[in-house]
Design a protein around this nucleic acid. Structure first.
Lengths: 202, 202, 202, 202
DNA sequence: GATGAATGAGGATTCATTCAT
DNA sequence: CATGAATGAATCCTCATTCAT
């Protein structure tokens, strides 16, 4: 890779890092491009060399984070359905917590804005996550881990809203609600009884 | 009540109604005080006779809505715990849906902003809702509807994040995710297995 | 006087007192009619029963204060010119200090604004004060206390700018510059040498 | 210096010039940022590229003006104390008059506002000017131009309030009180008798 | 690619003042 | 006289984005 290309990549990373730092630290409502570039030690205009709109930076920060979850799921093909779902849940929460509650808030704010939709694919995150869950469950049905009459769509709905619900509860409280603690009980109290009727008898 | 007082009340209502209409109709990000007052047919300054900050209007719209749920719960004391929880869930969703998805988005945006916290009590909504749920469950334990070893706190967490999760899924999709439809299956598929282990034997 | 008239006078006084208190306490830039009426426990509109413009209140507060100086001078006709001038100076400063430095600041701000001129006579305060000083000196010349060739106009200028200058220095510092302390040395160090050449030989 | 930097400097100057012009011309109370930028032919936001707050522009206008006085004093080291003080006084008044009475009013308004204090050093102008005067007098004492027992602090107070007093008298009258005329007599009638007792015998 | 000066739309909020009750 | 709801002008300042260098 050329030096120029490498420099460019580095500049991009500096901006992204600065944004992460600022958002994590404290800025929720009023993070400006100026804040970011000043903190990244680059000129204001440089931001627009790498990002079309100010908002995109949040998605760029979160993209690799979500990609990691998918990757991790690859290594779980040999595990049981319950374990796989728990792992998905835990991975998700772990990644969401990585950058702190303010990043989560910022992301939520972007993601619920329908105006953002046409401009970037992340607003289809919900659908994407649902598809992922659906795949896990469908595969389990096909493998006869779950019964043929498993109400996949309904279970997807339940699990996905549980997942997103925890994020919101976290955003709304940031002290009372500890997602990490939460997930520990999820499998036992929520997932097990939910799937119990559909687990194939062995 | 004097005519003046009545007029004042009416003006306030006009502003609130205009805001509801505008938010419901389309405005998510960029609803301005100007829009509201123009639509309400009052002077711009009049807005500030009734509301301290632009943001307060959302909370004022939602306050009676949330109050209604509490009221409704009073009439359910003779019903079983499962029924009561379902009813709470349905009431909640029904009220949230009343003003449409954009109101829900606006509310979420306010409620996740920690800066809003000190200024109004609605940001403790989460805690308030959890307390309500906790009461319902605790009463059931005391009534021996639920076993003594029911993990109340965990169930509260599960149910509350389910509730809020549905709101977010709705905000993120507004076509795919129909909360009303959703709630119909909630009792059967989610709540029943969740509580099953703790229902007292009769 | 009728009860009504008395009540009215009382209301007026309440407003004036509230304004004095607020200005003295802290408000310099942003004292509003609302602040005043709320503090005076009357309705906002009541303010305008007694004062045409918000600004007038400062002048109304200061008017009696300045009137007192004139009155006091009446009792000094038997004193020598140096003593009379010192007394004038001291009275002036004493009154100016009565309501504190913020009142002084407020008054200065009004008084240097030429837009205020046509609306009220206090902006001719400078001319009025100069006339007063001129009278004191002219009388002294007529009495042969001062020589016939005393440059009255020049002395008036010197003394009046000294007087106003101290007010400004006070406004600009409010800790370093203590007008009261100041006046003690005024007679000895400033006034005596200034008049010395013109004092009639006896 | 790069063309860009030069352009920027020019833009700043355009804004400053426009402000001077508008203030000098007529605006006292209601000069807006809009007025300034429109008159300077730049966008409104450009103002804030160069000045943090609207108020700062007055101080920026006056800064070089006050700096000049200090510079000029350097060339007076060989003159006598009376002459030096007269020169200081005249320079001061000359600079103050340069931009007209409305600039002086605007400056006074800023300078007496204690809220402005923390934000910029000009509000310590009084102290700064007093230090300057004190230096002039102290040097004279050290040079044996003035007697050892000269009450320096008192003289500083007298002279500085004279100086500022003239500014206020000017602001309050703008026709009656001509600072320039005034200063001509200052040395003869005010300063000479004031210092006379302390001039060292030669 | 990087810069940073210039843009200007955009929106919240304040408050003196009026006037019908 | 007292009230206080209604007014709406008045203005500040922010900030994402562009573009010439």
């Amino acid at each position: 890779m050329s030096t120029r290309k490498l420099n460019a990549l580095n500049t991009r990373k500096k901006i992204l890092n600065a944004a992460v730092e600022l958002i994590s630290a404290n800025k929720f409502e009023n993070l400006t491009v100026d804040d970011i570039t000043r903190s990244a030690n680059v000129a204001k205009g440089t931001f627009y060399t790498y990002f079309k709109r100010k908002e995109d930076v949040v998605f760029e920060i979160c993209r690799p984070l979500f990609a990691k979850i998918e990757q991790r799921m690859q290594n779980m093909t040999d595990k049981g359905i319950l374990e796989r779902l728990c792992f998905y849940f835990e991975s998700f929460i772990e990644e969401v917590e990585r950058y702190g509650v303010n990043m989560c808030r910022t992301w939520v704010k972007e993601v619920i804005d329908p105006e953002n939709a046409p401009k970037n694919f992340d607003t289809q995150k919900l659908e994407y996550d649902m598809t992922m869950l659906r795949n896990i469950l469908t595969t389990a049905v096909e493998n006869n881990e779950l019964k043929q009459d498993t109400p996949v769509e309904i279970l997807v709905n339940i699990i996905i809203s549980q997942l997103y619900g925890m994020m919101i509860c976290w955003c709304m409280s940031d002290t009372k609600f500890e997602p990490k603690e939460w997930t520990k009980t999820f499998g036992e109290y929520q997932l097990k009884p939910l799937l119990a009727p559909y687990l194939a008898d062995i």
